[in-house]
Simulated assay, not measured.
Amino acid sequence: MRPTSEAAVAEMIARADGPLSIRGGGTRGFDALGTLLETGGLSGIPLYDPGSLTLVAQAGTPLAEIEAALEAEGQRLAFEPMDHRGLLGSTGVPTIGGVIAANISGPRRIQAGAARDFLLGVRFVDGLGRVVKNGGRVMKNVTGYDLVKLMAGSHGTLGVLTEVSLKVLPKPEAAACVRVKGLGDADAVTAMARALGSPFDVTGAAHMPAGMDGNPVTMIRIEGFEGSVAYRAGKLQAMFGGQDVTVESDSEQVAAGWHRVRDVEAMHGSGGDVWRVSVKPSDAPAFVDALRQRGAVKRVLYDWGGGLIWVETEPGDDIRPSGFKGHATLIRASADTRQRLARFHPEPAPVAALTRGVRQKFDPRGILNPGLMS
C-alpha cells in the first residue's frame, strides 16, 4: 500500500486486519512482517520560511529534496542524518519521516543535538487509524504531552508519521578539521575529550583506528565564521603540540571527510555484521579491547568523542555481554543472524513494562511494525 494522503493512511490503518510493516524510503532494510505500508507517496514541502528557520514537510519527502531547498537559502539540517545505503547495500531514497522515526543523528549531535531536538511538531496516524497532531511551528510549545519527542525514535511502532515540522539552522561560512595522527584508541578518546572540553566549539570528534592510509587518525571539526574557524583551528593544533597534527581548511574536503564518518564508509561492502554501540566515552576503548581479545572485531570507528562506536564483527557474534553498561543495536547482519539475535538492545524489566504500556495506548491492536523493537 502506498497512500498519497493522510486521510488514506488513516483509512488503511483503520481497516487493517493484520500486521503492517511501515516503510519510508526503504533504505534501512528492516524485515517486512505483514502488509507493507509505504509513506513515500506523502511528499512535498508545504511550508518553508527561511526567515523564521522553520520547515514543514510531509513524511515521505526525500531527504535530498529538503537539503536542496535549504542549501538554496544558505541553511541546513543541524543534526546531519546519515545515509544507510552504502553500509547496508540497500536501495531506495532516504525520507525525512524515516529520519525522524529512527532519530537519525550524525557527528554533529555532540554539539547541536539529535534530530528530536529540532522537531517542532508532528502529525501521525495511530494504530486505530486516528489522526493525531502535536507540537507546532515554534520552539516554545509546552501545551499537553510532548508526543513530538516520543515519536522520534519510535520506528513506526506508535504511529505512522505523515508530517513533520523542523527547526533549521544557517549554514556556516567555513569549516576546518584538525587531524591528529598515530594515536591509540585510549589516547584518542582522551584527546577528543580535551577538544570537546575546550572553549573552541567543536562540532565533530571522531577516531579511526585505521584511516584511509591504514594508520590511526583522530578528527576534530570546527565550523563558523572564517576568521573564527582559523583562530580556533590554530588553538586546537597548538593544544596537540608534540603530536603529528595537520589542519584541513578546504570546506569541500572537510565535508567529504565527515561524510565518511557519518555514513561509516570504512564498513561499506564488507561482509561482517555491524553494530552501533553507545557507551560512556571513557569506557569505549576497554569495551573495544575486550572484543578484540575475543577475536570478534574486524573494523572500528569511534564517533561523538567515543560515545558512539561502530563495530564490524564476524558474522553471527552477539557483542552484548552480561552486565554491559551501554546500548548496542544490530544494524547489519544476515537474515539468519537477524532471526537469532534481537536487533535492539534488551530493555530492563521496568522500562520494558513502560514501553508496553505506551504501545498499548497508541497501538492497542499491536499491528504497527510488530516485533521490530522487542
Rank of each mutant, 00 (worst) to 15 (best):
Glu173Pro: 06
Ala174Lys: 11
Val164Ser: 01
Val168Met: 07
Val164Arg: 01
Lys171Ser: 14
Leu161Phe: 04
Asp187Ser: 15
His207Glu: 08
Met192Tyr: 02
Lys171Asp: 07
His155Leu: 15
Phe200Tyr: 15
Thr157Gln: 10
Val168Ser: 08
Val168Trp: 02
Gly156Asp: 07
Val202Gly: 12
Leu196Pro: 07
Gly156Gln: 03
Ser165Pro: 06
Leu196Ala: 12
Arg179Lys: 13
Thr203Lys: 06
Val202Arg: 12
Glu173Leu: 05
Gly156His: 06
Arg179His: 07
Thr162Gln: 01
Thr203Ala: 09
Asp185Lys: 14
Leu196Trp: 10
Pro199Ser: 13
Lys167Arg: 14
Gly156Ile: 05
Ala188Gly: 06
Pro172Ile: 11
Glu163Ile: 07
Thr190Ala: 15
Gly182Met: 05
Gly197His: 11
Pro170Glu: 10
Ala195Phe: 07
Asp201His: 12
Ala176His: 00
Val189Arg: 03
Val168Glu: 01
Ala176Phe: 02
Val164Asp: 00
Val180Met: 03
Ser198Cys: 12
Ala195Tyr: 02
Glu173Trp: 04
Val160Ala: 06
Ala174Cys: 00
Ser165Glu: 05
Val178Leu: 10
Ala191Pro: 09
Pro172Phe: 04
Val180Ala: 06
Met192Val: 06
Leu166His: 03
Ser154Asn: 11
Ala195Leu: 01
Ala193Lys: 13
Gly182Lys: 09
Ala195Trp: 02
His155Pro: 01
Asp201Cys: 11
Pro199Val: 12
Gly204Glu: 02
Val164Lys: 00
Val164Phe: 01
Leu158Gly: 10
Val189Ala: 11
Ala188Trp: 01
Phe200Pro: 01
Gly197Thr: 09
Met192Ala: 09
Gly182Ala: 05
Gly182Phe: 01
Ala176Ile: 02
Ala176Lys: 00
Pro170Asn: 11
Cys177Asn: 10
Thr162Cys: 05
Asp201Leu: 14
Leu158Phe: 08
Ala205Glu: 05
Gly184Pro: 08
Gly156Arg: 04
Gly184Asp: 15
Gly204Ser: 12
Val168Asp: 07
Ala193Thr: 12
Val202Ile: 14
Asp187Met: 12
Ala191Asn: 07
Val164Trp: 00
Cys177Pro: 03
Ser198Tyr: 05
Leu166Glu: 01
Phe200Arg: 04
Gly204Lys: 09
Ala176Cys: 01
Thr162Arg: 03
Ala193Glu: 08
Ala176Leu: 00
Pro199His: 08
Leu196Cys: 15
Leu183Tyr: 09
Val189Asp: 06
Val160Pro: 07
Phe200Leu: 12
Lys181Ala: 14
Ala195Lys: 02
Pro199Arg: 11
Val189Trp: 06
Lys171Ala: 14
Pro172Gln: 10
Cys177Trp: 01
His155Gly: 03
Ala174Met: 02
Gly159Arg: 02
Ala191Cys: 08
Pro172Ala: 07
Gly204Ile: 09
Asp185Arg: 14
Leu196Asn: 14
Ala176Trp: 05
Leu196Thr: 13
Leu161Ala: 03
Leu196Ser: 10
Ser198His: 09
Leu158Val: 09
Phe200Glu: 12
Pro172Leu: 10
Ser154Val: 09
Lys171Arg: 15
Gly182His: 05
Leu166Pro: 02
Leu166Gly: 00
Val189Lys: 08
Ala205Cys: 13
